[in-house]
Design a protein around this nucleic acid. Sequence first.
DNA 1: AATATTGGAGTAAGCGCTTACCCATCTATG
DNA 2: CATAGATGGGTAAGCGCTTACTCCAATATT
Lengths: 340, 340
Amino acid sequence: MKPTIYHVAEQAGVSIATVSKVINNTGRIGRETRENVLAIMKELGYEPSVVASALTGKHTNTIGLLVPDVANPYFSELARRIEDRGHEKGFSVVICNTDNGIEKEAEYVKWLHRKQVDGIILGTGIQDNRTLHELLKQETPTALVARDSPSLQVDTVRIDDYLGGRLATEHLLELGHTNLGFMLGGLNSSSEEERLRGVRSVMTTNNLSVCEKDIVTDAYTIEEAKQQAMKILTQAQPPTAIFAMNDLLANGVMKAARELGLRLPQDISVIGFDNTLLASISEPPLTTIAQPIADLGTQVTDLLVQEILGEKTVKQRIVLLPSLVVRESTTTIARTPVQK
Amino acid sequence: MKPTIYHVAEQAGVSIATVSKVINNTGRIGRETRENVLAIMKELGYEPSVVASALTGKHTNTIGLLVPDVANPYFSELARRIEDRGHEKGFSVVICNTDNGIEKEAEYVKWLHRKQVDGIILGTGIQDNRTLHELLKQETPTALVARDSPSLQVDTVRIDDYLGGRLATEHLLELGHTNLGFMLGGLNSSSEEERLRGVRSVMTTNNLSVCEKDIVTDAYTIEEAKQQAMKILTQAQPPTAIFAMNDLLANGVMKAARELGLRLPQDISVIGFDNTLLASISEPPLTTIAQPIADLGTQVTDLLVQEILGEKTVKQRIVLLPSLVVRESTTTIARTPVQK
DNA sequence: AATATTGGAGTAAGCGCTTACCCATCTATG
DNA sequence: CATAGATGGGTAAGCGCTTACTCCAATATT
């Protein structure tokens, strides 16, 4: 049977209070007693029960992580970083896949609440803020990652999507492209809107406009992305470059292009977003807007942990800046866009 | 303040025992009382504390999942399936990245134990069975996935790696290749050894042999894989086909080949393993040995949950069969292997 | 009508731990 | 030498829940 604090106390000839104090390094305990208790603990292979101590009003040392889908490279890398950092700080992380469903999200949050997790990291792109409001009302430490927090008082770590959109667009314009296509996914729509805002801003500055029919949306898998890309690429006057909102979609676009016999990047330039594993794997290697995923993960975890530990009182919003990573999927424009 | 069972009991004018009974659907409770209590619970927004009930000797409804690295597509897909199934069954999963380190693994297991997780799924490829032995001794329900259990009495779900190795080799031989190269990673070495055993078996049957210098190992990233592949490909008489033990490595091989000016698949055939996202993304699309990842995930979860619930007494070993998925990275041999 | 059943609900003892508070020594102080 | 702090450690009351057991009243049984 698993030894409890009672066994240790008995063996050591002290009270359970004393044992508890040496475990937690609280109160005043003599050198000798402490060492003795420690020895007994080791001898018995005693491990304090997190459950019991949690009941006494302390922490469970657990944080909940909500993401749309861990199988998505972006989120799996993020999850890895968060787990790493959490582990360093003594927290375990329970993972929840919401598929960006408001119902699932709410259900998970309720469940995590019952489990008394110490805090929650929201990495979903849901526009609906109901769950978030609920969370804040309940005073569960909460932090947002890769998601905007429109006018809400909550710790947030995200990238500047607007800037990301600008960077991508500027890159394409510099290469001479003026007829641009865009592919949105839907996994993190608030981010995507911001990026599109960046796009529009740059386009307007350059007296260009983005044609609504060159924007396709709702693609979650590479296959769907390919199908959607087909729509854009088979138009009368197809874009010469496509900006996909994540690397997975960009790969879908490339598949479509290849199937249509277009050469990459000579006939069609493609730029992605995120700079996940997929960007370096793809052929040609994908030019993309890099998110500092590792930093997003560690910083949001730090924020949450500080909040949990009560080490900080003011909420903050951290905005990391994306950067352009040029690889081989984009190049200067070759064919004349007029070919009606 | 969060309502407790006492608040509900008071409001409903019953004892906490009664409330507990309606929550758990145990004991005998009258229709009216039950409905009344239920109503009060809803009204108060009461949520039973998992922590408290866990302390009373029940379950925490949590399982621990140990994998080398969730950022690895294979494991992230697996993790997704396990979380999905776990969630369906009412369990949350806490994720642990061991990087295949025996120390980290042991530490995680100890920690999970303190947390009183109901069970543990081991998806690591560590050869050392110490942790596993420990786990079994402690009677923590444990299940292995994608990992062998040499002579141990533990629930296991895995694929037939030997068969996988055979399938890959047979495919290459059928295409006319006789000079084969192999690239191991190290993430799951027991599996890889089995696969290699499959390879050797087929080779021997065909009066062929595998040259030790055509086997490279220890590659964890795509970059490392590329470097290692270079070694094989720049030999005097390089293989005409390479069998990589996972899709990531296969991509590294393709990168190397491309850098050396080799055409894929005409000059060099590449076959991977796992059939993850990476296999369909890559260019050319990767021929690979498909693991039924979804089934691995759900079945191992089911096994563990049954074990936890005490619904079964005999341990079992489930072996799923891999299959060959032919895409475009392999083709019949073109150049003559003799070119010394 | 007397007894046996059974349905419905309460009592109270813990689960393993934390913590506010109390008590006994021991040493430094005037 | 009496006393005020330190110092070291114990007491006991919970935390929110489950469950074995008890008790009572309403039926069913003979």
